[in-house]
Design a binder for these strands. Structure first.
Lengths: 67, 67
DNA sequence: ACTTTATGTCATGAATACTTGACATAAAGA
DNA sequence: TCTTTATGTCAAGTATTCATGACATAAAGT
C-alpha cells in the first residue's frame, strides 16, 4: 500500500514525531507506516485523514496486487 | 469504532460470507469487524469501501473517545 | 419434523501492528 | 567542530488481527 503521508506532513511542516503525537502512536510506529512497512489500523488511518483534513482514500492507495 | 457494513450489505443483498469472499477475509473475521470486535486494517477498509462504492469515512466512524 | 441458511460466538494458533530503548547517519545551526 | 534535529532502522516484547474448525440458535423452506 502506498501513502502520501510525507506530502501532507510537508504541507503542515510537521515532523514524524509531531504527527505521531497528534494521532497517538509512537514515532517509530509512524515511520514504519509512512515507509510502507506496516499497514495501519483503520482507526489510525481515520485519525490521520482527519488531522490532514483529507480522506483515507487520498492518504492511502492500494497497490494493484492488493486491490 | 462504528460501521455501516450491515446497511451496505443489505443494499447489495449480500451475506457476511459473500462480502468476506469479495474482500478476501474469513467469514468469522468479517463478523468480528462488523460487530465491532476487531478494528480492520486499512487495506480491508479500502477494499470494503471500494466494493460498496463508498468511502472509508462513510463506512467507518470513530467513536468520540477515539477521535 | 427435518434441513438449510445466516449469524454469532468460542478456542487455538499464526501473522502482523505497535511500543520501547537503542544506535546510526545526514543536515543544519551555534 | 560540536550539538541538535529529523529520519531510518533494529531487537525484543506486548497487543491485536485474522484464520480455522467447531458449536449454538433462529428463521425459512420442504
Amino acid at each position: 500500500m502506498k501513502n502520501t503521508i510525507k506530502v501532507e506532513r510537508a504541507k503542515k511542516n510537521w515532523t514524524q514525531a509531531d504527527l505521531a503525537k497528534h494521532i497517538g502512536i509512537s514515532r517509530q510506529g509512524l515511520n514504519s507506516i509512512e515507509t510502507g512497512k506496516f499497514v495501519p489500523s483503520t482507526v489510525l488511518a481515520l485519525r490521520m485523514a482527519k488531522v490532514f483534513n483529507t480522506t483515507v482514500e487520498i492518504l492511502f492507495q492500494l497497490d494493484d496486487t492488493e486491490a
